[in-house]
Design a protein around this nucleic acid. Structure first.
Length: 104
DNA sequence: CGGCTGACTGCGA
DNA sequence: TTCGCAGCCAGCC
């Protein structure tokens, strides 16, 4: 059960530089199916001792739904842009930066 | 212990 | 394509 969280952190940590993935993708890869909300919650309750690039995780629409959880909400987007991620309005350009853990 | 909420997604209209 | 509803599960009151 708690392994789920560990897997989320591990998987998120495998997201390549300048790439993003979605909560649903992570949940599916971990076998959680539709428990995509747990992924979001997992990143929310992520231990401080871990250094998780949670800014590389967005919703299926590429929107930075978790930006509001960052201390400065704009930090999330700033971090992504700093990695070379481009934006289409308020959402990440998924066609160019989407990363599927199963495909690599 | 019971009920509500939430960093979401999929399906039907 | 867009809008609304149901499902999933952990955490908090």
């Amino acid at each position: 059960v708690n392994d789920f969280y560990q897997r989320v952190y591990a998987l998120v940590g495998e997201i390549p530089f300048g790439r993003v993935t979605t909560y649903g993708t992570i949940a599916r890869v971990l076998g959680a199916g539709r428990s995509s909300r747990l992924v979001g919650h997992a990143l929310k309750v992520v231990p401080d001792n871990l250094d998780i690039p949670c800014h590389r995780v967005v919703n299926r629409n590429g929107e930075l739904s978790g930006m509001m959880q960052f201390d400065p909400p704009e930090l999330m987007r700033a971090l992504l842009e700093a990695e070379g991620v481009t934006f289409d309005g308020e959402a990440v350009d998924m066609r160019k930066h989407y990363w599927d853990p199963e495909e690599g």
